[in-house]
Amino acid sequence: MIKYILRRLIQAVPTFLGITILSYMIMWAAPGDPVSLMTFDPTIKQETKERLANALGVNDPLPIQYLRWLIGDEWKVIDEDADGVPDERPADGLTRVRYGILRGDFGDSFYLRQDALELIVQRIPATLELSVTALIVSLTVGLPIGILAAVWRGGWFDQFTRVGAVVGNAVPGFWMGIMLILFFGAILGVLPMGDRGCPTRGECTPLYMRLDHLILPTVVLSLGGIAGYSRYMRASMLEQINSDYIRTARAKGLPNRLVWFKHGAKNALIPIATFLGPTLTGLIGGAVITETIFSWPGMGRLLVSALTRRDYPIVMAGVVVGSILTILGYIISDVLYAVVDPRIRF
């Protein structure tokens, strides 16, 4: 097992490098230019644009930019006192020494001018608040519904949940969100119309004090999960119920429920486990639409606005963080698969 994990981790290195090169190339091939977007203003003269482009380093050849981003550029900058500020302004106009992402320096956002990684890390608490709540709700509601629907297959509960679980998931999320805001916020006035519910000044209060702000976005986000998990769980559980070992157990006189829940449900969870790794990493990416509708200050909004502004340092930091989590997520899910399914050997 350990050997397998090690092998996967070593394999991940070229994957990671491939991702960085590929995304860097795609990014630069994409139309749109950060400097024209930042200076789309007739009062800003051509000379100023040149100056800005030099300062951001976007005029350098692509391979140079990639290397600077990957391994830094302090080897070509004179900085004897090592204070991170070049002793002489480098020819490319960059105002600080870069250390490269391999040493944790993701560069500064073109537009927001702060450390790109820091900007991403800043958004993680809000993103997790929303997405972890949604995941917990979809699992705790979706899985039992799936199991029970399989157990009472064909009964009223099965029929009801078969339609009911997906009803809420059959309209687009943005539409659902706006309707919920309109109904519970504007018309009934019982729930807040968005945002995290932090006070207008100072530190945000603990989550349990502003649960009301979580209700509507969680509903929107978890409906998909509930529908998905309950359907897959039902299908998976049915296969177990109909399998020979369950029949044998029942034939031997064990009570139905005990067999189903103790053995059937456990085995039925195996296929679901494969989802979990990618789901966990998907959570970090945030939920762009829900965050937009509910004015939630999460990662999704940051990444989309960075994309539309061609704020490459943020986009690339997002790609790198995302890919590391994705790689880890897949390894975890494969390992989980082996743990829950003893038939699989590596």
């Binding site: 394999q11 491939g18 991702i19 995304s23 795609i26 749109g32 994309l307 790689i327």
Partner: peptide, 24 residues
Amino acid sequence: DLVIWFITTLNSIPQLFLLLIVSA
């Protein structure tokens, strides 16, 4: 291994980004 490598790479690039490029 190859396919998993490909999937990981594909999933790691934000889909919105790919959509943006394709739509352009």
